[in-house]
Design a protein around this nucleic acid. Sequence first.
DNA 1: CTCCATCCCGAGCGAGCGCTCGGTACAGAA
DNA 2: TTCTGTACCGAGCGCTCGCTCGGGATGGAG
Lengths: 192, 192
Amino acid sequence: MSKRDDILDAATHLFAVKGYQDTSIADISRATGAADGTIFYHFKNKEEILVIILRRIKERILAEFRDNAAKGRFATGLERAENVIRFYLALTAAMETEFMLLFRNYPYQLANINEEARSDLEAVYTCFLDFLTEAIVLGKADGSIDDLPEDKVALVIFGMLSSMVRFRIFNLFPAAAVYPELLLSCRKILSK
Amino acid sequence: MSKRDDILDAATHLFAVKGYQDTSIADISRATGAADGTIFYHFKNKEEILVIILRRIKERILAEFRDNAAKGRFATGLERAENVIRFYLALTAAMETEFMLLFRNYPYQLANINEEARSDLEAVYTCFLDFLTEAIVLGKADGSIDDLPEDKVALVIFGMLSSMVRFRIFNLFPAAAVYPELLLSCRKILSK
DNA sequence: CTCCATCCCGAGCGAGCGCTCGGTACAGAA
DNA sequence: TTCTGTACCGAGCGCTCGCTCGGGATGGAG
């Protein structure tokens, strides 16, 4: 493992757990054994570290979603939609640290002033919303899903899911215990 | 208006819009015309400003919810639940700045090390959840709401609502356009 | 008037921050 | 062997931050 990767991994963890602003360069160098100077040899500044981390996260999430979409075969649009939902929940559990970072405020503040960060964050959200919207369109066509504006319903469901994940990751509520009701609620919203 | 209130108002706005960490004492003094020293005459440190702001927000939100509950008369539990939901959406619009602050990460970080902040934040969430849970229990009894664990369903609905409000407040998605579908979804989840 | 409390001011402190820069170590090419 | 490029180090610079402190203005009580 190269020092550069060490730095990215440690920074990902620290930015997620402590937050970007509360993580100093000294924190990262302490966590990696690298000197301050080494960090600025590999990255032009602190902001660039976060931008590159967001890029890595985006690429991994998009790849995972494409993988999942490629291997699934479903009889109805509703089943496809439920697969996307369950996959999102599983992915947020498997990539807990990464989603913790995505659920923080700072990346969105950065997105306002950094074009790369903005497009990467957008891609992550669009990815899930697109797959879900696509499934809803199929379901409306085959009659398994209620006839409602697909992008709006997708956004409502996305909000519901991401809130539960946020609650779970930040230990605000025992949200994992609610997953059965969560899936049931999604089914109620989608079906006629 | 006393200088102390000026400081609290300006700090509320700045903490909400820029974030706690990105707001310096100098920012607050510039916004109020008060000197740095004046701020530390009224508050023992920067953290205390936020703690007092959270206390004020909690008290106002709890009062609003109690007001709403006191004046409402509803035939069914479902109608009562829908009133709570609509009231939450109206309140978040009326107190946009305050909810923007509540949706930031820092207050929760603070809650981990400050008992007052923790209990105030908890009270805000418990307030909404309690009113909604109560309505669901009534609805289950009178048959207007499906027989599901009331606290879990309340949490799912709360998540859905708060996500949409967050999307709207931070301009992430055009979430206000989704409010009709949001209410429809709540009804679908609650009814049999 | 004096005295005291309250409110406010702003220069300046020490600490911590992101970042620079002169330097070292070492591997492979010439 | 010398040269060159890559990786890494850590002292320290310049700056901003939260916060302190000595003092000034005002107003009511004695």
